[in-house]
Design a binder for these strands. Structure first.
Lengths: 137, 137
DNA sequence: GCTTGACTTGGAGTGCACTCAAACTTCTAG
DNA sequence: CTAGAAGTTTGAGTGCACTCCAAGTCAAGC
């Protein structure tokens, strides 16, 4: 297990800030990271992979609280895979519902945009036919 | 313009709490609502429609700050449709990116779930072939 | 040795989006 | 007329997810 990346290198690679990396470790989302002799963090490749997965969870709006539970289960080893799978499955149900809600809402925004285009076109027409600026009714 | 619904009726219809409806009004997301003689709010059908649209914006994670700008533009009348359309268009770009990110992340979760299933199956097989409970390695 | 810059810690602070509290006033049913 | 439900206001409080600060440590270059 290679252990070589500094906190700022990991920040650059993951897009998380060094602040947030320390915060995640303090919160128990990341297991205590290996340290160089002087106490500085040295992240292993496996840490990077785990942080990547945490980012997938964050992208799907899993709360820190749920991630804490998930990380704790992960720390308990292979025996906790059923619980972890169930957590992901029920989270995925919510995520898919949320994606559909966003898609529906996005279509409503699209419709509103079209509506505005129509209004703008008719205002433009009014200006052209009367030869004056559109009044403010 | 019918003006008849009380705040709790609107809360029931929209899923927002009465607290939140007052907060939105104070924040300028909803224009001052008509009042009954005693000062109680009486929402018109047009208010309901607007609140519905605000909910679409909220579902797509538009911030209160942006909604305030949008609501202010709306209050300025038809002349502001180009700005409103541009706001929605650029917001929609973000929303679509966010939907795609969530979909990618959801596929990663799905893959992890499959991975867990595989692990569970092999643990189960080990238990069956050896006739004992899975040890904790 | 000294400076510079990257790192460490615990605790405090920030911004967002609500959410509630306190002290009222008003409406409705009996 | 009265009880109680429902509404009003302003300002304060909450929970989340960071984000920053102060005071200190450590390694490398001059």
């Amino acid at each position: 297990m290679e252990s070589h990346l500094s906190i700022n290198e990991v920040a650059a690679r993951t897009g998380l800030s060094a602040h947030t990396l320390r915060y995640y470790e303090r919160a128990g989302l990341i297991a205590p990271v290996a340290r160089a002799p002087g106490g500085q963090r040295r992240y292993a490749t496996s840490d990077l992979e785990w942080i990547g997965f945490l980012l997938r969870l964050r992208e799907t709006r899993m709360s820190i609280g749920h991630m804490q539970v998930f990380a704790r289960l992960r720390g308990e080893g292979t025996g906790s895979t059923p619980e972890r799978r169930q957590m992901l499955e029920s989270h995925l149900v919510e995520v898919e519902a949320s994606i559909e809600a966003m898609q529906r809402a996005a279509r409503a925004l699209q419709a509103k945009i079209e509506h505005y285009r129509t209004i703008e076109a008719s205002l433009q027409t009014a200006t052209q036919t009367t030869g004056r600026k559109a009044p403010c009714p």
